[in-house]
Computed example of a mutant assay.
Amino acid sequence: MDVMKATARQLLVKLGAGNLSLEAVASEAGLTEAEVEAVFPTRDELLTALLIDAYNASGEAMEEADRAAREAGAGAGARLLAVTRALRAWSFENPGEFTLVYGSPVPGYHAPMDTVPPASRTPAVLAGIVRSALEAGELTPPKRPLTGQSLLLPEAVQLFGGVPEAPYADLIERGIVLWSSLVGLLVFQVFSRTHDSVRDESAYFDFAIAVAAEGVGLEVPFNENEL
């Protein structure tokens, strides 16, 4: 199984997820198609396994970065920068898997519920940091509430641990903006959308995270002296 998945990950870069097939995996790995089908009867089952691995690996990278930051006594802003940097590093090291997770949907493929818990690890790390910042009094209240009613599904409220009281009643919605800004920023950088606009993409990444974090009222250190 490990050889098959490793080969499939290589083919994600060469062929793209939409062109991945059991036949291609078998040919590249020096196996028969029947041997691959014995483990992954369909292409969709192989894609699901790759998705789960990608979600778990990227989530684990963020969790480890957060653990190290907390052990070093970092505040919430520095923790946020550490975990987003970890996800950026994973994304550049694994472009095929990043594209599978955050790129265009694969025609005809629908991710099963098995992928939901692994997929939740990234937002859970972000939510944990924002929640701890709220509890520690590290957040700046928003200048104005932007919604008079909740825009959330129950799952999002549960992930965060409940809706905060005013003036932070829309903090979860703002957190989802932070999360989507992170993913969009990574898409821009991994797919080389910012290389002709900024001189230093790593520094720009930190800048963008600091700007996005202001939306939840969190101050992110922007240079090494502030970490």
Rank of each mutant, 00 (worst) to 15 (best):
A49Y: 10
A49I: 12
A49F: 11
L50M: 10
L50S: 02
L51N: 01
I52W: 09
A54L: 08
Y55A: 02
A57Q: 12
S58Q: 08
G59E: 01
G59F: 00
A61V: 10
M62Y: 03
E64L: 14
A65W: 00
A65V: 04
D66E: 11
R67L: 13
A69H: 01
R70F: 07
E71D: 14
A72G: 08
A72L: 08
G73W: 04
A74Q: 07
G75P: 02
A76K: 00
A76C: 05
G77H: 03
G77L: 04
A78K: 02
R79F: 04
R79Y: 02
L81P: 00
L81F: 02
L81K: 03
T84A: 01
R85N: 15
A86G: 08
R88V: 00
N94H: 15
P95C: 06
P95K: 05
G96L: 04
G96T: 06
T99L: 09
T99N: 11
T99C: 04
Y102Q: 10
G103K: 08
V106P: 01
P107K: 12
G108N: 10
H110L: 07
H110N: 05
A111Q: 14
A111E: 14
P112L: 13
D114K: 15
T115L: 08
T115A: 14
V116F: 13
P117H: 11
P117F: 08
P118S: 10
R121D: 08
